[in-house]
Amino acid sequence: MTLHLPAADGTLRAYEPRTEPLAFTPGTPFTSRTVFSAAHVVADPLADVTPDSPAAVDWDATLAFRRHLWSHGLGVAEAMDTAQRGMGLDWAGAAELIRRSAAEARTVGGRIACGVGTDQLPAGTLAEIRAAYEEQLAVVEEAGAQAIVMASRALAAAARGPEDYLEIYGHLLRQAAEPVILHWLGPMFDPALEGYWGSSDLDAATGTFLEVIAAHPDKVDGVKISLLDARREVDLRRRLPHGVRCYTGDDFHYPELIAGDEQGFSHALLGIFDPLGPLAAQAVRVLDTGDVPGFRALLDPTVELSRHLFQPPTRFYKTGVVLLAWLAGHQDHFAMVGGLQSARSLPHLARAYELADTLGLFPDPKLAEERMRTLLSLYGVTR
């Protein structure tokens, strides 16, 4: 049945939903790339909370979604910005999420890495920032998960220059029990991280970042780059010490970066692989056979959806991710912690539905159509 979807100019356009999904089945573990999906959290829609309240999480649905990702061979990057870290999910909620997800990973044999930050500390001295990082690292290591050392808003505000980043990260890496993933999140994802690594000049910042890695190569499993700049990622990738992986976090250029070139490739740690999980897994298995054109043929068509979800203000991409999870039947509602379901317009959400439906991402297209129709009606679109 035809849906009438709102366009950016306020007009309605007819759209005919597809009737059959693409078929995705779990398969063998990946052999050529290490791939993580940064996973969203499912809010408890019946909790009596306000946007300023601690997050109320539906733990059963949240863990079920992680099992879905693991079933397709993807690793889970837990308690990252996709999980609304610092945008509705506070440290207490993140710590509980880490413990529960790590325990679930052990049960099903899934790979998991978890975010380590300083968000229990809105601001502080360098000593307090170091202690906050240490507290979170201890929680992740005690849970039995790999650590992803995330960028710190508090450190961005307190650091006087590159030397403070070298000191804080060096201290943390020296005490890490196992190699970690370092995460460089650009200001398009979080404006408070402008000037990270001690400079707004990205060349200078890259130099400091590489200096941290070079001083502790045995403690760095890899780096996650989220700057939405493919050229810069490739340049940095080629400068990494031997054995240190590059995990692309570029939700605009991921097919080409994962495919790589004659000098190397990127692994992946991506928020877009939350809604793309089964399709992305199938594409990587094709890549495992050496079929780069086949890999690109599967993944390239998804870039339009990803660029739409991550369009500025990029930090609100989570709203589209959760919309698609609801439409796909992974959760029973379109509510988000912190009320973030209101962060994108109806035309934006309608376009996200259309692009995802065209790709065949919904296991039950009829359910997705019915849910989209319900959302439209709540906004007064009844045609």
Score class of each variant (00 low, 15 high):
G88E: 08
E233F: 04
W326Y: 15
A205V: 01
H330W: 07
R315Q: 06
P217N: 11
L309T: 06
E194G: 09
V244S: 06
H242E: 13
A95F: 15
E354I: 06
L355R: 09
V303G: 03
R106G: 14
A77K: 04
R383E: 14
H72N: 01
P217L: 10
F30M: 05
L305S: 00
G360K: 01
S306W: 14
A352D: 00
G88Q: 10
Y196G: 08
T208H: 01
R373Y: 00
P293K: 03
L182Q: 05
L12H: 04
R344P: 07
E128L: 07
D291K: 03
R106T: 06
R237A: 06
T206Q: 14
P241T: 01
A159I: 02
G380P: 05
S152D: 03
G339N: 10
M80Q: 10
E370S: 12
V321C: 08
T289S: 15
A259D: 05
P29F: 04
L97E: 12
A297W: 01
R18I: 14
T19I: 10
Y379W: 15
D291P: 04
F273N: 11
V108Q: 06
A297T: 05
T206R: 13
P17G: 04
V223Q: 11
L376W: 02
G27K: 05
M150S: 04
L202R: 13
A38C: 14
P122R: 02
D261W: 10
D52Q: 13
R238H: 07
L269Y: 09
D52I: 05
A156H: 00
I148R: 12
Q175M: 13
A158S: 01
A268K: 00
R296K: 15
V42D: 10
T28W: 08
E256R: 13
H68W: 13
Q282L: 12
S342L: 09
P241S: 00
L375T: 00
P122H: 03
Y317R: 03
R232N: 05
E163F: 09
V381M: 12
T208G: 00
Y133N: 04
H40E: 10
R13D: 10
L74Y: 03
V42K: 11
I129A: 13
H216M: 06
A192C: 07
I129F: 13
T11P: 11
V284G: 11
G115W: 07
L63S: 00
Y247M: 08
R315P: 04
G243V: 01
S199Y: 09
R344H: 06
L298P: 11
E262L: 13
A176D: 06
L22P: 06
R85F: 14
W197K: 07
G27M: 04
R307H: 08
F24H: 12
L298D: 12
L63W: 02
K366A: 14
L324F: 12
L5F: 05
T31D: 08
S53M: 02
G73P: 01
R13K: 15
Q282W: 10
S53V: 02
V303F: 00
E20N: 07
H308Y: 01
L355E: 07
D261I: 05
G161K: 02
F316S: 11
F36Y: 15
P365W: 02
R100S: 09
W326N: 02
R245S: 13
T62W: 08
I112D: 02
Y196R: 10
V337M: 03
L287G: 09
S71C: 03
P312I: 09
H242K: 13
E163V: 02
P347Y: 04
